[in-house]
């Protein structure tokens, strides 16, 4: 009975979704000119938000990658909140699984996995660091780079049952990264006009040393995400029963 009702409701929802999607004007969503009224002088700006981002990112922020410019520069406060959510989740996991360390015995992994993961780990860490250092030039950034680094540590945990993250080092890395993020935002308040505003020279777009504070913040985010995800994996690994 329960399943029948669920199937009927889900199919009805499917039909509703399809009908509503058929009204989306797909072809000109990003291209259409949206008119916004300027609150100060009452004029209508002849520009849409996406086209503003695409045409002005390079001049305003110095970053080539528009997604990175949005995440770190235009909506940097949002990203600070998101990092806080991630931190809260990691804290919750650590809190709930505090006393479960040293669970049941696990079988040793075989030789190929152990030696192979030892060989591959430095390259995984290097790839993760490359991804978040080049966040303003290539696709990627702090979040994917941190996830890649955490996957490297996860591989070590899978192959060595006795591999633990050093809790002290993880928490110090995480706190330093978070402090760097907030401190750079406060420096923007001091040297420029608002929180998280760029106060460093923009440099030549397309080079590593460009885009002002964007690479610094993204490196901090990379360290923070990497340490938090590895500590989540480390806590979830040692669960009894």
């Amino acid at each position: 009975m329960r399943k029948v009702v669920a199937i009927i409701l889900a199919s009805a929802f499917f039909a509703v979704l399809l009908v509503s999607f058929s009204n989306i004007q797909q072809a000109d969503y990003g291209e259409k000119e949206y008119y916004y009224q300027n609150p100060i002088n009452g004029s209508y700006a002849n520009e849409s938000v996406p086209s503003h981002y695409i045409s002005n990112t390079k001049n305003e922020t110095g970053a080539v990658n528009a997604v990175t410019a949005i995440v770190v520069e235009y909506r940097g406060f949002d990203t600070l909140g998101e990092v806080t959510v991630l931190f809260t989740a990691a804290t919750g996991v650590s809190f709930l699984l505090y006393k479960t360390r040293g669970g049941k015995k696990r079988t040793e992994a075989n030789l190929i996995l152990k030696e192979g993961s030892k060989l591959v780990l430095p390259f995984i860490l290097l790839t993760g660091a490359y991804i978040f250092i080049h966040g303003h030039l290539t696709p990627g950034g702090g979040f994917p780079g941190g996830a890649v680094i955490a996957s490297g540590f996860l591989l070590m945990m899978l192959s060595y049952p006795k591999f633990f993250m050093k809790e002290r080092a993880v928490s110090v890395t995480e706190s330093m990264a978070g402090i760097t993020f907030a401190f750079i935002g406060l420096l923007g308040l001091v040297f420029a006009s608002s929180f998280l505003q760029n106060f460093l020279p923009l440099g030549d777009a397309g080079y590593i040393l460009s885009a002002g504070i964007i690479p610094i913040i993204y490196i901090a985010i990379g360290f923070k995400v990497g340490s938090e995800l590895s500590s989540i994996a480390d806590k979830l690994k040692e669960v009894q029963k």
Partner: peptide
Amino acid sequence: PLPQALVLTAIVIGLSVTALALT
């Protein structure tokens, strides 16, 4: 670029929320 930035955020949030739910 705006939806891509939003989804980049949403994926990480979803991952952490799933980890908390599993805990």
